[in-house]
Structure formats: C-alpha cells, structure tokens
C-alpha cells in the first residue's frame, strides 16, 4: 500500500534575507496576473532604536489540515488533494468569494478570469515528480524547504531539530502547514 504524502513548508527566518525571489519565481512559474501574488514577504521590525530586530517571513497559503476555505466552499471547488495540500478546481469555482472571507490568512484572491486562486505548493511540479516548488528552488539562501511530513527520509526532523517553531494564528484551529523556524 502506498504511503500518503503530507506536504508542508519549513521556512527558516534566520536564513531569509527578504530578497523576494520566492515571489518573483512564483509569479513567473504560475503566471500570476499583475497586481496579485500567491506568496509575499512580510518584514517585521521589533524593539526600539538602537536595539532593533528584524524578521523576514515568506508567506503563502498554509494548506491547513482543517481548512475553513474547504468547509465553506459551497461547490467543493476548494478541496483537500490527499497529499496534504489544499487545491482549487477552477471548473467548480463560481467566484463567490466564501473561501476568501473564510481564510484567516488572507491567502486568496480572485483571478481576473473569475476563479479563486492561491498557492498550490506548485502541485503541477509535485505531480511531475520534482518535489520542489518554484519558490523553494529559487531561494538563494535555502530558507524555504518543501517537506513531506509523512516521509521517513528524516529531512523534516533534521530541519526542525533544536529549533523553535512558529505557526501562524494557531488559535484559528486550522492546523496550518507552514512552519517558521525562529
């Protein structure tokens, strides 16, 4: 019996320099229309001068395990793919925007062609057996890693070992799968 995959993304905030290469790679790979983005970089500055700290965070759809976009979608256009990712079937989407209203991470937008759109973890690349997304492949500091949490290859464990892990808005109860290493 084949093992079910569970893709997640581990993002090392110590490595991230906020260059936004991930954003441009995604826009190019996925032909994201002008004025929109599937991923973005948030820079958070804390403290007061001269004691300042800066954290860069590359963000995108969290591919939640308990995704409110899926439960609120009236047509099953938003769905779990079975590999731990949340995908949108454009043929089923009505553009009603319920998923946008439901997402605590504001990860979605309406594509000018009428359907809801967001990060897919480059599902077309995963299907082609590449096991990388455009953003992870282009990241110059290797801050972004696409991992399979159900895999026995030890990659996820190695990245997480000894590091403090942050997930965004855990109180939303959505079980997000972007893991930021602090």
């Amino acid at each position: 019996m084949s093992r079910e995959r569970k893709y997640a993304m581990i993002i090392d905030t110590r490595r991230c320099v906020g260059c936004s290469a991930c954003v441009f790679a995604c826009k190019t790979e996925n032909q994201v229309p002008e004025g929109f983005c599937r991923d973005w970089v948030v820079s958070i500055t804390k403290g007061s001068f001269p004691n300042l700290s800066l954290v860069n965070r590359s963000e995108r759809c969290q591919h939640c395990e308990d995704a409110p976009c899926v439960s609120n979608c009236p047509t099953e256009a938003s769905h779990y793919q079975g590999d731990g990712t949340v995908q949108i079937d454009r043929d089923l989407c009505t553009g009603c925007k319920a998923c946008m209203a439901a997402c605590p991470y504001d990860a979605r937008y309406i594509h000018p062609d009428g359907f809801a759109d967001k990060c897919s973890f480059c599902s077309h690349r995963i299907k082609a057996g590449l096991a990388t997304t455009a953003c992870t492949q282009v990241c110059p500091t290797s801050a972004l890693k696409l991992v399979d949490l159900n895999s026995n290859d030890g990659q996820a464990e190695a990245l997480l070992r000894g590091r403090e892990v942050k997930i965004d808005k855990p109180h939303a109860g959505t079980k997000p799968k972007l893991l930021w290493l602090l």
Binding site: T75, D91, L92, C93, T94, G95, C96, K97, I110, D113, G114, F115, A116
Partner: peptide, 8 residues
C-alpha cells in the same frame, strides 16, 4: 457579485 458568472 459572482466572479465566475457562467459557473452559477
């Protein structure tokens, strides 16, 4: 309001 009206 529907962005994809033909899919209503």
């Amino acid at each position: 309001d529907l962005a994809y009206k033909t899919h209503v």
